[in-house]
């Protein structure tokens, strides 16, 4: 791949929908994708501007948005209540549109740890956290995490105490789920930005737990 591929500052491809693969042959499905999007634009079903704008939305969506909500919930009990009621409404307080699908947060406590999966496809709160990682969509994760979550978590380096109840949420329907992780010990003096920095995507899926800075 060419070294300028990810430099969006001074390099604008002639067409907004082109893959960043200018020096590789187009695959069959990439060709189909470009053909479909161009046909939809020609037929005025969608506009090129809408396509560009949606790419920007996708690029702007990342686990950092979820981390902000978690850090606020750790710092503000009233906000936490609202987050647990509706992630979408809580995100709106930050001016963030968490998308058309309702998202619910599952709260980890000292006695309960939650993990999220979609065994039938790969449902994920992507309008808030961005596109899911490949492993979340993999056969191995989707097959095993409902049956042996402790073994799967161990592969992510997460060992839960034996007396913690583990709950696996399978997103089969009209809700998407994220985990509200447990605030780790040793973070009392931290502000929201510092707290948000320790909340990773994997913590919000539930395969890892946040760690206080310097506690690795």
């Amino acid at each position: 791949m060419s070294d300028h591929t990810h430099d969006h500052g001074d390099h604008h491809p002639p067409h907004p929908m082109q893959p960043d693969l200018e020096d590789t042959p187009l695959t069959y499905h990439q060709s189909m994708t470009l053909a479909v999007v161009e046909l939809l634009i020609e037929k005025n079903v969608i506009s090129a501007d809408e396509v560009r704008a949606m790419h920007e939305v996708i690029d702007a969506t990342s686990p950092a948005l979820g981390a902000k909500l978690v850090a606020r919930a750790w710092s503000d009990a009233e906000f936490k209540k609202r987050l647990l009621k509706s992630v979408n409404d809580a995100a709106a307080e930050f001016g963030v549109d968490a998308g058309p699908v309702p998202i619910r947060a599952m709260e980890n406590t000292t006695g309960v740890h939650n993990v999220i999966v979609c065994t039938l496809c790969s449902c994920y709160p992507k309008y808030l956290l961005g596109l899911p990682p490949d492993w979340y969509k993999s056969r191995a994760y989707r097959s095993r995490v409902v049956r042996e979550p402790r073994a799967v978590l161990a592969e992510f380096g997460t060992q839960l105490p034996g007396d913690v109840d583990l709950v696996v949420h399978d997103s089969t329907a009209d809700f998407r789920y994220m985990v509200l992780p447990l605030r780790p010990a040793g973070t009392d003096g931290l502000g929201e930005e510092e707290l948000a920095a320790i909340v990773t995507r994997d913590c919000m899926i539930g395969v890892t737990c946040p760690k206080a800075p310097g506690s690795e």
Binding site: M17, Q18, P19, D20, L21, Q30, T33, L34, V36, V37, L40, I46, E50, V51, M54, H55, I58, D59, K126, L131
Partner: peptide, 12 residues
């Protein structure tokens, strides 16, 4: 980019 385009088509 093409993957984001696929996601974009569905969202729209």
């Amino acid at each position: 980019s093409w993957e984001k385009t696929v996601d974009t088509i569905l969202r729209l």
